[in-house]
Structures are given as C-alpha cells and as structure tokens.
C-alpha cells in the first residue's frame, strides 16, 4: 500500500470515498477515476486485444505460418517456424500480463515493440499491393495474419495506432492501484 505521507496521490485517494460531498468530493472522484479506473480500462483493452489476437493464431498455427510466409521476411524455415510457433503464445502471455496488471510498463513496452514492426510490414505490403494493382490504399484488404481474418488494411492500421497510443500512455501513466503487481522489481 502507498504511504499517504510520502505519496500525495495516495493521500488524495484516501479521502476519495464515494460518501464525500461538495466540490472537493467531485474533484476526488475524478481523480480516482483517472488514476485508478482509466488505466485499468486502458490496459484491459490492450491486454484483451492481444489475448484475443494471439488465441486466434494459437488455434490455427498452420494458417498463421502460411500467412507469415507471405510477407517474405525470411527464407530460413527454422526462423519462419519459430515466429509462427512462438509469436501467438507470446502475444497471449503479454496480453495476460497487461490484463492482470503485472509488470505493466515493461509489458506495454514489449507490446509496442511488437505493434510497431507489425504495422510497418503490413503497411509496406499494403502499399505494394495498392501500387501493383492500381487500388486506392484504403481499398486494399487481405488477411494480414493479425488474428482477425481478412480485413481492410486502413482499418487495421487505425486499430494498431489506437493500441500503440494506449501502450505509450501506459508507459507514462501514474502507478496503478488495481494491478496485481504493477512493477516487477518494486521493493
């Protein structure tokens, strides 16, 4: 538990019971929402998205393998197999960490380190398709191996951008109370 004497934010929460009335009470309630429930909501969205997308691939790893192959990232089948075998489970693992609130900042950083390159390779492939087939960029759709089947790439990139914004916000958000173990190496 945070010490109210050393942590002004904790002191603020200690007076933020729902029984509190008046202007000061309103302010405390807002503070409680933004510092407790909004981060919980944000990491639940990011975590749930990763668990869902990861599970879609875990349930059909051979299809995911074929989809990864289409990106032409490598000719080495050991590398290709390793990506297709481990990445879905890794996504589920990171999603669960965020969902339960374990090592939230570290997990957010790892998730960002996945989302950024994923988005870049999807963007690159979509741009290639748009130019080779004379399509408008937002008309391009294919199964990007992201876990949701065939999808409009504009929409997918928007979704990824939203998830990345949440991830960045979680990196800088204040320490959260409703987390199992917010910081892994906390004293």
């Amino acid at each position: 538990m945070a010490n109210p004497l050393t942590n002004p934010m904790a002191a603020d929460h200690s007076t933020s019971g729902f029984e509190t009335t008046g202007a000061a009470g309103e302010s405390s309630r807002k503070s409680s929402f933004w510092s407790d429930f909004f981060p919980l909501f944000a990491r639940s969205i990011l975590g749930a998205a990763f668990v869902y997308m990861g599970m879609q691939k875990v349930l059909a790893p051979s299809e995911f393998l074929s989809l990864v192959r289409q990106y032409n990232l490598t000719n080495n089948y050991l590398v290709l197999n390793s990506i297709a075998a481990a990445l879905p489970w890794f996504e589920v693992f990171c999603g669960l960490l965020l969902f339960t609130g374990v090592a939230v900042r570290g997990a957010s950083l790892v998730v960002l380190a996945m989302l950024l390159p994923f988005s870049i390779v999807v963007l690159k492939r979509a741009l290639g398709m748009a130019s080779s087939q004379g399509l408008a960029f937002c008309a391009v759709q294919f199964d990007c191996g992201c876990g949701g089947g065939e999808i409009n790439i504009c929409r997918k990139l928007m979704e990824n951008s939203g998830l990345m914004l949440i991830g960045i916000w979680l990196l800088f958000a204040p320490a959260q109370k409703l987390a199992l173990r917010y910081a892994l190496f906390a004293p």
Partner: peptide
C-alpha cells in the same frame, strides 16, 4: 521498464 521488458521477453 527496460529491465522488465527484457525479463518479459525472455520468460515469454
């Protein structure tokens, strides 16, 4: 944060 990320990456 980096330390946490490395632990998550290896364990994951």
């Amino acid at each position: 944060i980096l330390r946490e990320a490395v632990v998550i990456a290896i364990l994951g």
